[in-house]
């Protein structure tokens, strides 16, 4: 095991890539996507073995892609926080509170006012997180655990014992639509992922974000305003959560008390499988998160097809998480002594 330390420098890994397509490779995350794509292929093969060729029906792809669309939107926004070196555990509950408020207010106030209030509440929660973490330097995991508790209380107060139902006809019909095997919502989510990937790879602010997450002190010395970037990352995640909450209602027609925690877990598990890290910023590519969610979604659909107890999803996810982080470490990630 000890020889592994010699492979930790990124230089070691990037010997091969030629200068040609360097930009494209950078966009796809360079070698960091190798592992998650391999894992996705692996899941694809396992699915074929377990479920047979039936698994590759247009229907199943439609189910898979629409199931992961909302978490995908949420992850696309939340991953910017991870890049900037903050972990916001309250993004899932933000989706929950946004969904609850949108479903409760939408029928009375109309679509846009309801949606605006829902997004604003999510943004307000994110702003409080930013204030506590950036201004007062509270630990981000711990502070957002507090926010998570607050948001679950608000969700309970809004929904009470009678979850409202709000079917937005146009959005509901849209959420059921698909282009071949890909649901429309999924295609939009992929577009969002690609946009965010482009932003963090090519845009100056995106590069600064990654620098701020990678080494805060070095970034500060280089004149990067780390605090301001982190505030931006928090608010960006909050915005994404607010939008995801509206899409959630569009797709499912109503909220529930406990959608937050499972969404958080799903998204962060996907991002970590996709090469992001909870403990160091600056690494990972949103496209990796896309593949991570494809893996999680595929396992979920597989469980449905085979009528397997959902608990196995947790076992598989838990193992996948550990393996993913192990692969990340072997690839040059931090080694924990």
């Amino acid at each position: 095991m000890s020889t592994l330390t010699t492979h930790r420098t990124p230089v070691d890994l990037d010997i091969r890539p030629p200068k040609r397509f360097a930009k494209i490779r950078a966009f796809y995350g360079g070698s960091s996507l190798g592992a998650v794509v391999t894992a996705a292929l692996l899941v694809a093969v396992i699915s074929l073995i377990v479920a047979g060729p039936d698994f590759y029906s247009v229907d199943n792809f439609g189910i898979l892609t629409s199931y992961i669309a909302v978490p995908l939107v949420m992850s696309a926004f939340a991953c910017v926080g991870l890049l900037a070196g903050i972990v916001d555990l309250s993004v899932g509950p933000m989706v929950g509170v946004s969904a609850a408020i949108f479903a409760a207010l939408g029928p009375q106030l109309g679509f846009w006012p309801g949606a605006a209030i829902a997004v604003l509440v999510a943004l307000a929660a994110a702003a409080i997180n930013a204030l506590a973490v950036v201004r007062f330097r509270a630990d981000s995991i711990a502070a957002t655990v507090g926010m998570l508790t607050i948001l679950s209380g608000i969700t309970l107060a809004v929904i009470g014992s009678n979850p409202p139902t709000y079917i937005v006809d146009g959005l509901f019909a849209f959420s059921l639509g698909a282009l071949g095997p890909f649901s429309y919502l999924f295609l939009i989510a992929v577009a969002v992922i690609l946009a965010v990937a482009g932003f963090v790879t090519f845009h100056k602010v995106g590069r600064h974000l990654r620098a701020a997450g990678g080494d805060e002190n070095a970034a500060t010395r280089a004149g990067i305003k780390v605090g301001r970037l982190r505030v931006f990352a928090f608010l960006f995640g909050g915005l994404g959560a607010g939008i995801a909450g509206i899409l959630y209602i569009g797709q499912n027609g109503g909220p529930a008390l406990e959608i937050g925690p499972s969404l958080t877990f799903q998204s962060y598990a996907a991002l970590m499988i996709g090469g992001f890290s909870l403990v160091r910023g600056g690494v990972g590519n949103p496209i990796g998160g896309l593949f991570g969610l494809l893996i999680i979604g595929a396992v979920g659909v597989l469980l449905d097809l085979q009528q397997i107890n959902n608990h196995f999803l947790d076992v598989v996810l838990g193992s996948a998480l550990i393996v993913a982080v192990l692969v990340d470490r072997l690839r040059g990630g931090d080694r924990f002594e």
Partner: peptide, 28 residues
Amino acid sequence: MHIKYSFRRVAVIVAAAALSLGALSACS
């Protein structure tokens, strides 16, 4: 160097595959 690294990665992936396959075939 690089070859060694790849071997290790392949080993990890194979281990992961074996693990997932084991879990899935056990439950199915």
